[in-house]
Nucleic acid binder design. Structure first.
Lengths: 177, 177
DNA sequence: GGAAGATTGTTGTTGACGACAACAATTGTT
DNA sequence: AACAATTGTTGTCGTCAACAACAATCTTCC
């Protein structure tokens, strides 16, 4: 979770900003006023993958945080626990590299998870610099529930963009997983 | 630079291992060690759209920032100028609502852009509370160059995930644009 | 075997960003 | 005219990525 953010309080009045009715446009459309209709013309951003991905990512993370709100787990915490659960004994360096987060950042994440007794740092015998990361017993049962809630979250995503679209998306971005 | 450290080199090497031959796994699979091979097992994160989207979004933004580095324009600044360029005279409130950013945040963004003489806040005649936003002459020519660089960035995205995949992605996420 | 270099976990700083809260000026509503 | 709502602004808080520096501990190489 590299989340960018948020504590999505409650999606108040602004549940969703509706885009415009789409006209087919070429990506090389030049900027020009588009105010003939009452709406704000933003076709200028239509061809930009990064913008759409960013907006979508914010939506997804907010839903994740809301759906896992009852257990107070954020996307990054979830990813850390998932990787440790699947690969017990990993070092902090290995986990950080795997998830693409700074090892400096992982320190705080683990501090929090260890405080909640979901994860344990065990001194490594081979390399006394590093810690072997493990889930606690509580961590394992907790992760099982987190996964159930995460699955529910994934269903929300499927509802939002369509089941097939979600699968296509996962396929397109599989290299980044 | 260090930015490229985010490049998914690990994911790449794992690409072939992913769908394990054997049993069909459900997304709520319990965690279990997957270390038989030398790689770190992360199949546990494979079915999560948010994670893939997040990693991809980071990659895209880093490429955007690098590609537009010579003109020192970040994605948010670009989106603000694009919207103003396409809809001159818009109020700050309207721009913020359109881009889904806080109007408080837009204040700083506009301060920066106005300082660089790319954007102007003009006092609105109708509503003396609000400002009508316009690009300066310099802003218009600058935006034209930004768009050329942004198009180059989009080509990088197409190279990364494939031309058709990029288009499919834009289509899937068109509601968020 | 020991010095030099690299790695691991840690602490701290910086800057971008989202969410909120409060405020003055202005507009709208009644 | 009184009261509510909107707009831009300022400021605070928390999350996150990117760096830099450091002590402790390997690893390498002579």
């Amino acid at each position: 979770m590299a989340r960018n953010s948020q504590a999505p309080r409650i999606a108040k009045s602004r549940a969703g900003i509706r885009p415009l009715p789409g006209r087919a446009r070429s990506e090389s459309d030049n900027a020009h006023s588009d105010l003939m209709n009452g709406e704000i013309g933003l076709d200028a951003l239509a061809g930009h993958a990064g913008y759409a991905v960013r907006r979508f990512q914010i939506w997804v993370f907010q839903d994740f945080i809301r759906t896992l709100g009852s257990v107070d787990i954020r996307p990054t915490q979830y990813s850390v626990m998932t990787v440790i659960g699947a690969n017990p004994g990993l070092s902090q360096m290995a986990v950080a590299k795997r998830l693409g987060i700074e090892r400096a950042r992982l320190v705080h994440l683990l501090d929090s998870l260890e405080q909640r007794e979901l994860v344990r740092r065990v001194k490594s015998a081979n390399d006394r610099r590093s810690h072997a990361l493990h889930l606690t017993a509580r961590g394992r049962t907790a992760l099982a529930q987190f996964k159930r809630l995460a699955a529910e979250h994934e269903r929300h995503v499927a509802e939002k963009i369509g089941k097939e679209n979600r699968e296509k998306l996962l396929q397109i971005l599989s290299d980044f997983t």
